[in-house]
């Protein structure tokens, strides 16, 4: 009877592979028993089968009863943080996309329609990707981080002395702080991604131009790594949001993420592809805002030629500072 097979399949496909064969055989014999009972041993028709299956209940409900614990991609203890982060991320993306649309429209007003189409496309595509990433990060935290109580012993032998202190004001991580950081990180990612990481200038009165910091040719090589850095930045904030207070565990997590960010920066350097716009100085001079030979020009040139080393030192310093501060804040409150 194909209805029975279909029902059994609908149940077991929701179960782990190891259980499927056994449960299927058992369910089938149960259903035939129930049918026999109904028809007193006479052959059952489709209507009988339907009644019996309806009595058994929806396949999903049945499968739920078979599987012992519910498995969560993002469990109830993380759900609130997940929704908060998702809202922040989506809102800041919408904001960033809108700002970029505005910039593009001002810079190139005659391509308004193109920019508008880009704008709409971005509004559709980027939030979906962001949803994916945020979900992935939270699923990772759920999978690796949240330990449900392992066994009953843990619940029975506990010492009230071991309960964590109520965090004082200083160790509580302000939600507003993490939210602002996420918005800032996303916005920064967008500026780079839209290659508007540049100095805007008005070229001798006729039109807007911008002098990009980055090398357009090798940009595609770096962009995934920059995205990764943005991702790490957001991950840090999410960890802070989930933890809610400064703890040693959080400090270790933050240090790990910082280490990964650092590794990403080092990879970017190791790639040795030209990262910066090689014509930056001449383009800057071309805009007319800075004349070659002036003191300001020389200062900028000096900073520019040492750009990589300065940025690397700054990021290094930033990541180390992040970790050290995290440890400091966690220890201070013990």
């Amino acid at each position: 009877m194909d209805l029975i097979d279909r029902y059994v399949y609908a149940v077991v496909r929701r179960l782990p592979h190891s259980q499927r064969e056994e449960v299927a055989a058992e369910l089938k014999s149960l259903i035939t028993d129930m049918l026999d009972e109904r028809t007193n041993g006479n052959p059952a028709d489709r209507k009988d089968v339907k009644i019996v299956l309806l009595e058994l209940g929806h396949p999903r409900e049945m499968a739920d009863k078979y599987s012992e614990s519910r498995k969560y991609l993002i469990g109830p203890e993380l759900y609130d943080s997940f929704m908060t982060v998702l809202k922040i991320v989506l809102l800041s993306i919408a904001f960033a996309v809108a700002v970029i649309f505005a910039i593009q429209s001002i810079l190139e007003p005659h391509h308004l329609l193109d920019h508008f189409i880009d704008f709409i496309l971005s509004l559709v595509q980027i939030p979906i990707a962001a949803l994916g990433w945020v979900t992935l990060i939270f699923a990772g935290i759920q999978y690796f981080g949240i330990k449900s109580v392992k066994n009953l012993d843990d619940l029975e032998s506990w010492d009230p002395e071991e309960l964590p202190e109520v965090p004082d004001e200083k160790s509580v991580i302000k939600r507003s702080e993490t939210i602002i950081n996420i918005i800032f990180t996303i916005f920064f990612g967008f500026l780079i991604g839209a290659s508007y990481f540049a100095i805007p200038a008005i070229k001798s009165g006729d039109s807007f131009v911008s002098v990009p910091f980055l090398n357009k040719e090798s940009f595609s090589v770096y962009f995934p790594l920059i995205l990764l850095l943005v991702g790490f930045g957001i991950l840090k904030e999410i960890l802070k949001l989930v933890s809610g207070k400064w703890t040693k565990k959080l400090a270790i997590q933050i240090s790990l993420v910082s280490l990964l960010s650092l590794a990403t920066v080092l990879i970017m350097i190791a790639l040795e592809a030209p990262f910066w716009n090689p014509d930056f100085m001449s383009e800057l001079a071309g805009t007319g805002i800075i004349q070659p030979g002036t003191e300001l020009y020389q200062t900028i040139e000096r900073i520019w030629s040492n750009g990589t080393i300065i940025i690397v030192i700054l990021t290094l310093f930033g990541f180390v500072l992040d970790s050290v501060l995290a440890f400091f804040k966690s220890v201070k409150n013990v």
């Binding site: 449960v23 369910l27 149960l30 129930m34 009595e55 058994l56 209940g57 409900e61 009863k65 012992e68």
Partner: peptide
């Protein structure tokens, strides 16, 4: 209900 009993037996 059979739908309750069978999973229970297995458990």
């Amino acid at each position: 209900e059979p739908g309750t009993l069978y999973p229970l037996l297995r458990r």
